[in-house]
Write a protein that binds this DNA or RNA. Structure first.
Lengths: 125, 125
DNA sequence: CTGTATCCTTTAAGATACTG
DNA sequence: CAGTATCTTAAAGGATACAG
């Protein structure tokens, strides 16, 4: 059928691009990406880079990104074990958009916090 | 204290910018923004623009964005009632980043879907 | 038309403890 | 070191019906 344009449309309820867009906004995914920006990193390093994440949740996040082809998981047969995570070429293309969003969030956080206080003041007193 | 740089850091567990970044990725927020890109829009119009959203959830999303100062809600005292939603200046500054993310999602959806199929094939049979 | 109210299901996430 | 297992809680989202 139509595979040239409008093949994917986030405004369409069933479009897979929706799930992709949502995944970007989940709690830990963006932080994993930013932590991997500079290069490969192992599990415990990621855990430290990203404050407050439990091993279970970090594993879930990493597996999910691996499944989507956004990063690779490499196991080195050593003792003690070493596992490295690294962005794929595809994953790296997401860094730009992610940084833009991050910069927006950091740059406008103060205004938003003020707006919230103002709203709450008016609507609760 | 330090209000000049690194005032907000998404890598920091308790930074408010995290909650902002997360909100961008919730299910309906980006779609509301894209629907409001062309100008003010009323409730029922938004409901139709955005497939599959229930009134309850749409209201929640809109209220939350209003609270953050990203859009305004204007009630016109008519019968039948008319309510229009419109992006604020602050909200409009988020359109650019959002479009970049949307384009990435739509542009790479196919590759990701293939990666998923491949992963599932290997890890389940 | 623009919502609210209720109830329900699903999913994300966190705490904690344990294993190859 | 790099996870897994189990349990529990919190939050998001959806179905449906109804109200001003």
């Amino acid at each position: 059928m139509d595979t040239e344009q409008r093949a994917f449309d986030v405004m369409s309820p069933d479009c897979p691009s929706r799930s992709i867009m949502q995944r970007m906004g989940d709690k830990w995914t963006p932080l994993v990406f930013l932590a991997l920006e500079a290069g490969p990193r192992r599990f415990s390093a990621l855990r430290q880079d990203i404050g407050g994440v439990t091993p279970k949740v970090l594993t879930q996040t990493l597996r999910s990104l691996e499944r989507d082809g956004l990063l690779t998981r490499t196991i080195y047969p050593e003792v003690p074990p070493r596992v490295e995570y690294e962005l794929t070429e595809l994953g790296a293309t997401l860094l730009g958009p992610l940084e833009i969003v991050r910069d927006w969030a950091q740059g406008h956080a103060e205004k938003i916090i003020r707006a919230r206080l103002n709203y709450d003041e008016i609507n609760e007193g």
